[in-house]
Design a binder for these strands. Structure first.
Lengths: 339, 339
DNA sequence: ATGAAAGCGCTAACAG
DNA sequence: CTGTTAGCGCTTTCAT
């Protein structure tokens, strides 16, 4: 492992304890000795082995991040912010992409435990707490982002997806007179999309519109082409639709494409709303009206929560709820059947 | 640090050596004992501390990834692929975003060295090898992606940015009859954009077009709005331009927006070509003609190179060069002044 | 077929 | 003000 503290001690003609103390400024060392040690460190290109230190200090300064996929713009931005904030506090991030696979997620947790991370930040895929329970039982702090696992208490920073969707749908109904609104749901249920759907249902109800199950369809996957297919299915089945909500920007972008392929004009024939507020949705044409998740705020809250918890692990779990907000852009307009 | 090998040994009534051997199958242990040990591991929820193991084995199974920013779609995809491939080989990734800052990059290298990573993968920002030289001197394998630091020999997987740009510009000239082609360059020079520019220059030369320095401008930053500004500057100064090449997709997207804001129609008035092949450029409108970097192939090559090097570190440096390819989409068409 | 014990590089308690 | 040393959790050599 190259140069060790011993080599430095020998070169500086001091004990290894002194070297350690010079590095961490953990007790007074005379100026001359300090200089000698620093010189030796410099000359030998010594980098203290933090992993060994962690052996005694019970702290690795490593945090695990479990996330579906960082190549998603939203998750990428989020990871980047988290990494930056934690790096400033001397923590490093081991990022594990789960690709929405429970088995990969479990494997990731296992590795993180063997790497003895000080804490875990997760956007969990699973809806069973099993593996996360193990983390918790080991008293390793966990922070969940935008997901709940029912019956599992953790610190979490949530997005008010109910309100986000409710507001978007209400806007379509009240401001733009839509009454036939299609809905593209997530392939598999998790807490966030269930909340979204509740927002859709409640907004319809509150405006006296009966729910039509035919207007709701699940995307087959998490990607663009799934959006294309979903919208086609929806529009063929329900030609009366004047607006469509996609639970996720990429799906909504696919929906725009699918609708265009079917000969519809966006937004004149069909209004489309997305969810997440990914940057690229603003540069597309038409730009996408979408519900924006406050990423920076999210990252800040997550890190704060975790850092606090790393200091005192004993207090009650905290849940923070952040409001998304509707970004009105070009992909929506007044309903074509508005009277 | 919770449950240790000792606890397992005690519970299974064997020595810690035996526990270790059961875990790693590193010597024969009788069936009964093996079962007892595994049962104890299970019941105690024991996760071996890999960091300690690395103390003796001189191997941490951790790789450092230094990258400008993973929230960039290209880098995000790249990171994700690298993470997945290495994870399958039991390696973890510590990702450090440098935000194109040399000082952050240096700080990142320092941390990676204290975390005793087995290897480093980097898209370097600096053009001075100083810190990377330290890594190399410690005989830690490094792989560079798409960047060269002159006078610094490392394994690298490069993109043939010269050819990528040359082909794109040649296409504009030969197929689409453009003769007045603007060029938006990177804010600061690095190897890849220098190669790109050389491709631009040579393509013009080879087609008998004289280089006009006024047609070349540098983006002020790496972002969308810098593209907007750059194109405006370019078009005001040179109304004769019929096409513009942006060294980076986001800049090119900004250029489209800027040109539209000035009243140009894309592609009829101005053709615009980007570089990178980010996914979102295909769903925008008009979709962007761009030079696509082969991300998956890139990730595979990088990981292969690194994994090989982790086995035998003594051989000569390897450089792999991958060809990008032109994706022809909607943002280019025949020059408006074509005769 | 299994155990005892040295030692990896470092921190921190103790000693002087 | 500085040095000596035990020990963190584990792997591996040596011993039986």
């Amino acid at each position: 492992m190259g140069v060790t503290i011993k080599d430095v001690a020998k070169k500086a003609k001091v004990s290894i304890a002194t070297v350690s103390h010079v590095i961490h400024k953990t007790r007074y060392v005379s100026k001359e000795v300090t200089e000698r040690v620093n010189k030796a460190i410099e000359e030998l290109n010594y980098y203290p082995n933090l992993l060994v230190g962690s052996l005694r200090k019970k702290k690795t300064f490593t945090i695990g991040l479990i996330i579906p996929n960082i190549s998603n713009e939203t998750f990428g931005k989020l990871s980047e912010n988290i990494q930056r904030i934690l790096f400033e506090k001397n923590y490093n991030l081991i990022i594990c992409n789960t690709a929405n696979s429970v088995s990969i997620e479990n494997a990731a947790i296992k590795t993180l435990l063997t790497k003895k991370v000080d804490g875990v930040i997760a956007i969990p895929t699973t809806t069973e707490p099993t593996k996360f329970l193990e983390i918790k039982n080991m008293e390793i702090p966990i922070v969940f982002i935008d997901r709940i696992i029912s019956g599992f208490e953790v610190d979490s920073v949530l997005i008010n997806n109910y309100k986000g969707t409710y507001d978007a749908i209400s806007y379509l109904i009240k401001d733009l007179k839509h009454r036939h609104i299609g809905y593209i749901d997530r392939p598999i249920d998790h807490s966030h999309n269930i909340e979204q759907k509740r927002g859709y249902i409640e907004a319809l109800k509150d405006n006296g519109i009966t729910i039509n199950e035919d207007f709701i369809v699940r995307a087959e996957r998490f990607d663009y082409s799934a959006g294309v297919n979903a919208v086609k299915l929806l529009l063929k089945r329900n030609p009366e639709l004047t607006a469509i909500f996609g639970y996720y920007d990429i799906i909504a972008m696919g929906a725009i494409r699918g609708a265009i392929e079917m000969g519809y004009k966006i937004p004149n024939d069909i209004s489309i709303i997305g969810y997440d507020g990914m940057p690229f949705t603003s540069v597309s044409n038409p730009s996408l009206t979408t519900v924006k998740i406050p990423i920076t705020k999210l990252a800040n809250n997550v890190c704060n929560l975790l850092l606090k918890r790393l200091e005192k692990n004993k207090e009650k779990n905290v849940t923070i709820k952040l409001n998304p907000n509707l970004l009105i852009r070009e992909s929506v307009t007044i309903a074509r059947d508005a009277s």
